[in-house]
Simulated scan of single mutants.
Amino acid sequence: MSPRFSLEGWDDGDQRLRRKKIRPQARRKLSDLTADESGEVADDVIRRLLNLGHISELVSELKSGKEATTYLARSEKGSVLVKIYRDLSARSFKNDGIYRAGQVITDQRAARAMANRTRKGLEMLQFDWVMAEYAHLWQLWQAGLSVPEPLVGPNVKTYAGTVPAVLMRLIGTEDEPAPRLSEVRLTSCEAQQAWQQAVQGMADMLRLGYVHGDYSTYNLLWWQGSVVIIDFPQLSTRQNPNFDLLLRRDAQSLSSSFRRHGVQWTGEQTLREVRRRAQGAGPEPRLCLP
């Protein structure tokens, strides 16, 4: 079952989602996040991460996308990728209905607010979206898939305190973060290796009953000959009536995006291979110490 989060009892006094500013948060510039001359950190999200001990230092901005901006930070656990989501009302990607289909929300007041995309409803959707990425990361990581290691949790209450940020281990190094497959040039041999790993990753998710929902070289990192899957808030399960549509779309997106690397598979061929591999054994699960 897809991990979604009850919003029953959510009220105006809930501090987790409150903003000091009414204006939606879009891209946060690094200069706006770090300490000013007085030593005070301007951004409430970064200040909270520092106070909770999840990070010790914010180093640089890595990439700004349509939904979030990623930053490089440091902590006792090493190099950290901090992904801070923009407020839904400030994001260019807002059509999340296809991924949320089949989700049951017992709190009718909350359901109406989210359906009508009121200010409160958008805050609830934002909270659910970020929490879903954490939950999916933990599930896939523990199942042994090639995904970034989440660095907060797995207790839900623990990672709820970081919303709208998701913290994970940096893939690559501080001097050379892992690039997306859409950004690199591969030899013919490397392209075949990357393709096989990408197809296997999609099959491993399907074996667990998941479809990524946005699977292409834009959401696959390439580091030292290995493919790492990223970006999971829209992950769906078979309870979503759009599951087969999303699976077919992912197969087409993967095959289309790999053509620049010289891999010539059709979407239908890719889908058949993914389904075939999903019948086999999965990776060895990871041990998660308390």
Score class of each variant (00 low, 15 high):
206 L>Q: 04
98 I>R: 14
86 R>P: 00
147 V>N: 10
102 G>Y: 10
81 L>S: 06
104 V>Q: 13
183 E>H: 13
164 P>K: 13
155 N>V: 11
95 N>K: 04
166 V>C: 11
97 G>A: 10
139 Q>F: 00
171 I>Q: 06
85 Y>F: 14
160 A>N: 05
101 A>C: 04
157 K>P: 00
188 S>A: 09
173 T>I: 12
149 E>V: 14
94 K>N: 07
170 L>V: 08
110 A>W: 02
93 F>L: 12
195 W>K: 12
189 C>Y: 13
188 S>R: 11
197 Q>Y: 04
192 Q>N: 11
175 D>E: 15
141 W>N: 08
143 A>G: 11
127 F>Q: 01
163 V>H: 14
170 L>Y: 11
180 R>K: 12
143 A>L: 04
152 V>C: 01
112 R>G: 02
191 A>R: 03
147 V>H: 12
133 E>A: 00
93 F>R: 14
182 S>L: 06
149 E>T: 14
193 Q>P: 04
101 A>P: 00
188 S>M: 02
200 Q>V: 02
153 G>N: 07
125 L>K: 14
186 L>Q: 04
95 N>M: 02
101 A>F: 01
212 H>D: 01
176 E>F: 13
113 A>K: 13
118 T>M: 10
117 R>E: 12
157 K>F: 09
162 T>F: 08
180 R>F: 02
192 Q>V: 08
200 Q>E: 15
199 V>L: 08
107 D>N: 13
154 P>Q: 08
143 A>Y: 09
122 L>D: 07
166 V>S: 07
103 Q>T: 10
210 Y>L: 06
130 V>Q: 01
157 K>Y: 10
147 V>W: 10
103 Q>I: 12
166 V>M: 09
121 G>L: 06
187 T>Y: 05
104 V>Y: 09
101 A>K: 15
204 D>T: 00
123 E>Q: 06
104 V>R: 14
133 E>G: 01
194 A>P: 07
130 V>F: 02
119 R>E: 14
209 G>L: 11
135 A>Y: 03
109 R>D: 12
170 L>A: 14
124 M>E: 03
179 P>M: 02
88 L>V: 02
190 E>F: 01
152 V>Q: 01
82 V>A: 12
202 M>R: 09
130 V>C: 05
191 A>T: 05
126 Q>M: 10
209 G>W: 11
119 R>V: 12
119 R>H: 13
110 A>N: 01
85 Y>A: 14
200 Q>F: 03
187 T>P: 01
187 T>F: 10
201 G>Y: 05
127 F>I: 00
112 R>W: 12
176 E>D: 15
194 A>E: 05
150 P>M: 05
172 G>V: 09
99 Y>N: 12
159 Y>A: 03
90 A>L: 09
166 V>Y: 09
91 R>A: 15
134 Y>L: 07
